[in-house]
Amino acid sequence: MNTKNILIVGVGGQGTLLTSRILGNLAVDLGYDVKLSEVHGMSQRGGSVVTHVRYGTKVYSPLVEVGEADIILSFEKMEALRWKHFLSAEGKMLVNTQESDPMPVITGSASYPTDIMEKLYADCKEVIEIDGVSIAKELGNIRVVNTILLGLLAQSMDIPKDQWIEAIKLTVPEKTIDINIQAFEKGYYHGINLNREV
């Protein structure tokens, strides 16, 4: 199989690392060679963060290169635009529309761009946007945003849904399993009309 390239981006502290580890371990279970490249240390303190996930028959480099990502999952709107050039011509951009102001915007030395979605739609072959924070608030737990995004990612991947759910069960605290599965389903069926409540 050709190597699959996935970039998970966001703001330090949002949980991008955990999402990439769940994906990486699922790919291992499917028998692929897998490499993950993570960000630890200073950048985690609210900085722009990126995790690279690559899997296939044989993977050498742990890095997804500019122009080669099959999927970018962005936990924050502006970060999607920051990493957009990593997406391949055929690639898919998954965006959580949450806005997080970086310090230059907070101090007024820069403005948060207002044309992010227009640029994404103009330059990416496929864009799926999701308001993860609102969905999480509806579910009654703001902390499940990353599980909703995991569901959205799963929707675009050829890994059976059951396996994602098993992975969630192994990862989250036991008493939050139910709400995390609900959150996953919200993301997994996002934009899909099932004529039923999920």
Binding site: V11, G12, M42, S43, Q44, R45, G46, G47, S48, V66, G67, M78, E79, L81, R82, K84, H85, P102, M103, P104, V105, A110, S111, Y112, P113, K119, D123
Partner: peptide, 11 residues
């Protein structure tokens, strides 16, 4: 493709 010029996000 070039990277977009955006406000930085330092830690």
């Amino acid at each position: 493709a070039a990277a977009e010029t955006l406000p930085g996000r330092p830690p």
